[in-house]
């Protein structure tokens, strides 16, 4: 009996020892966890601090360089929209309707610029994307050169090309169309080549096995796979390009932007408001329309 009690006591002792060891191990783990958590919190906080510093530093520099002050501006923020609405109110409904009719041809021109540029860039960018995809072209040099060409096309802000072309061609939608096309070729070619690089090569290999050349492999093996994605990206671009062609009009490349620039300079409140309204309405409807078509094409809203 005594022996049993002793052995029991010993067991309790062992268990206590074990529990102690377990507890210290747990404490170690939790300490290590806390260390990691603290370090991560520190990283997050310093990153956030950097962001805050960037924002306030940037706002300070920008505020210094601005011709008007922030607080005075905030106070005046609604003055201009109010001015526009008063102008529109004075014009009356029939007058506004007449203005819509007056500016409608320019809206059509702006949309045409965007549509033509997007179409041209779809074909040219598509062609460029096939020779800039690593999995479709075995020659590394060709791919590298084509990628640089793509990068340069994409890096050109539309406004630079448009400003130069306006000087040569005079105020004309041709300048805007060329400018938008150039940038869009680069932008679409990049997105397209990413699509190409993610596609399944089996179909192209099948075509090759029955003697198809490179063009035929692309046409029948790759294109059917990538076309829905190509179209989806192109539709997204169309909306971006309508905005871009409106802006280019502002520097003299024709369309609704040019008219907006004129009425802004002359301070015609009703005209400004009508043009803004037309622009916003067409951008929003193209946005919805392209979203709807894209959903039909690829079954979900594609991300930019």
């Amino acid at each position: 009996m005594k022996a049993l009690t002793l052995s029991l006591l010993e067991d309790v002792d062992v268990a206590a020892h074990l529990a102690l060891a377990e507890a210290s191990r747990l404490a170690e783990i939790s300490q290590a966890y806390e260390r990691v958590a603290r370090r991560r919190t520190l990283y997050t906080l310093s990153l956030l601090g950097l962001c805050v510093l960037c924002i306030f530093g940037g706002l300070f520099v920008a505020g210094q360089a601005n011709s008007g002050g922030f607080w005075a501006g905030l106070y005046k923020f609604f003055d201009y929209p109010a001015e526009l609405f008063i102008g529109a109110y004075e014009e009356g409904v029939p007058g506004l309707f007449a203005l819509v009719l007056q500016y409608f041809p320019y809206l059509v021109e702006t949309i045409n610029i965007a549509l033509v540029s997007t179409l041209l860039a779809f074909f040219l960018g598509g062609a460029l994307s096939f020779v800039a995809s690593r999995n479709l072209v075995s020659n590394r040099l060709v791919v590298a050169v084509m990628r640089r060409v793509m990068d340069i096309f994409r890096a050109f802000p539309e406004i630079v090309i448009a400003l130069l072309l306006v000087l040569i061609f005079g105020p004309s939608p041709v300048a805007a169309a060329i400018a938008v096309t150039t940038h869009t070729i680069g932008a679409l070619a990049k997105q397209f080549s990413e699509v190409n690089e993610n596609c399944d090569l089996k179909a192209a290999e099948g075509i090759r096995s029955v003697g198809g050349n490179w063009m035929e492999q692309i046409r029948f093996g790759i294109l059917p796979q990538v076309l829905p994605n190509f179209l989806s990206y192109t539709l997204l671009r169309l909306e971006v390009n309508v905005r871009a062609s409106a802006i280019l009009g502002f520097v003299g490349a024709g369309g609704l932007g040019a008219e907006l620039k004129m009425v802004v300079d002359w301070n015609y409140g009703a005209d400004i408001l009508v043009i803004i309204f037309m622009l916003v309405l067409s951008i929003t409807s193209i946005d919805y329309l392209s979203g709807w078509i894209r959903q039909k094409l690829i079954g979900q809203t594609g991300q930019v």
């Binding site: 002050g69 501006g73 005046k76």
Partner: peptide, 22 residues
């Protein structure tokens, strides 16, 4: 989003003046 960056910049340039703040 629909009121384009062009129009926002026009409105802010009116309010804050020419410069990067706008």
């Amino acid at each position: 989003r629909g009121v384009d960056m062009l129009i926002w910049s026009l409105i802010f340039i009116r309010a804050f003046g020419l410069g990067p703040l706008s």
